[in-house]
């Protein structure tokens, strides 16, 4: 089975972001970057399928400047077979533009399965996977938490509120992956060494003019400082009154 996994390089989310001077993106100084979380699950799921089958290949694809090579090499060091960078100066916010560039690369090759993370952890649009499916005329299953492929036919589990549904589909297909499918492995030193020798192709990204841009970014408003009503039991009646009448959280 030939599997393509599309991965995105995103900033580490465990930091306090600042908005850049132009107010259309975050200030990138001091940020650490890594593969988007859900993309990590997708890579792991793909590797497990390949290992289970004992054959096939996992090709990782990422769109962006040369910095994405590091993210691609991480996937290679986890065990992916080869990598493709679709080179452009910056990743457009417009998911359709990204999907078009990916589809033009992926459509030309014969993949049985094209995988994505459910959404990127930075912009969280979750549209690129379904759009690629649409552009390539393939079935798409989103947010799979389990995936099984038997004889060219797939079954995916999707978590619902209070239950799960199982979707059957034929390959080739596009799936987007939710967490819980498989914990991404950390690359071993052997994997890191091997990654240096695996093929990493760089091609120009075939990007159409984006039709969406970020007009402005805002941080959430700062929370006002709390108020100390008083101390001890004596303060309780006033506190209750305020919670009822001012904050209106008590009936």
């Amino acid at each position: 089975m030939r599997i393509a996994v599309c991965i995105k390089r995103v900033p580490d989310m465990d930091v306090k972001f600042r908005i850049a001077g132009h107010a259309k993106g975050v200030d990138e100084t001091g940020l650490k970057y890594d593969m988007a979380d859900f993309d990590g699950y997708a890579v792991e799921a793909a590797l497990q399928m390949m290992e289970k089958e004992g054959a096939g290949e996992v090709v990782v694809v990422s769109l962006g400047p040369d910095a994405v090579q590091e993210t691609l090499r991480k996937a290679l060091s986890m065990g992916a077979t080869s990598a493709i960078q679709l080179k452009c100066d910056e990743v457009p916010f417009d998911g359709f533009a990204v999907a078009s560039a990916l589809a033009s690369e992926l459509g030309g090759a014969t993949y049985d399965l094209i995988m994505f993370g459910r959404m990127s952890t930075d912009n969280a649009n979750g549209v690129v996977g379904p759009m690629v499916a649409e552009l390539l005329g393939l079935p798409v299953v989103t947010a799979c938490s389990k995936l099984e492929i038997v004889a060219g036919r797939g079954t995916a589990r999707r978590e619902l509120e209070g239950g799960a549904e199982f979707v059957a589909f034929d390959l080739p297909a596009v799936v987007t992956i939710d967490e819980g499918i498989a914990r991404p492995r950390y690359p071993s030193l052997k994997g890191i060494m091997a990654a240096k020798k695996k093929p990493l192709a760089t091609k120009p990204a075939n990007l159409p003019e984006p039709r969406l841009v970020i007009a402005r970014m805002d941080l959430p408003p700062e929370r006002k400082a709390g108020r100390i009503v008083g101390e001890g039991a004596a303060a309780v009646p006033e506190l209750v009154r305020l919670l009822q009448q001012e904050a209106k959280v008590l009936a």
């Binding site: 950390y186 690359p187 071993s188 030193l189 890191i192």
Partner: peptide, 17 residues
């Protein structure tokens, strides 16, 4: 650059572990 990237990858793996 190559060595530094390997080092970062090793440190990332160790931290995740």
């Amino acid at each position: 650059t190559a060595e530094s990237e390997s080092l970062m990858a090793i440190l990332d793996s160790f931290r995740a572990f």
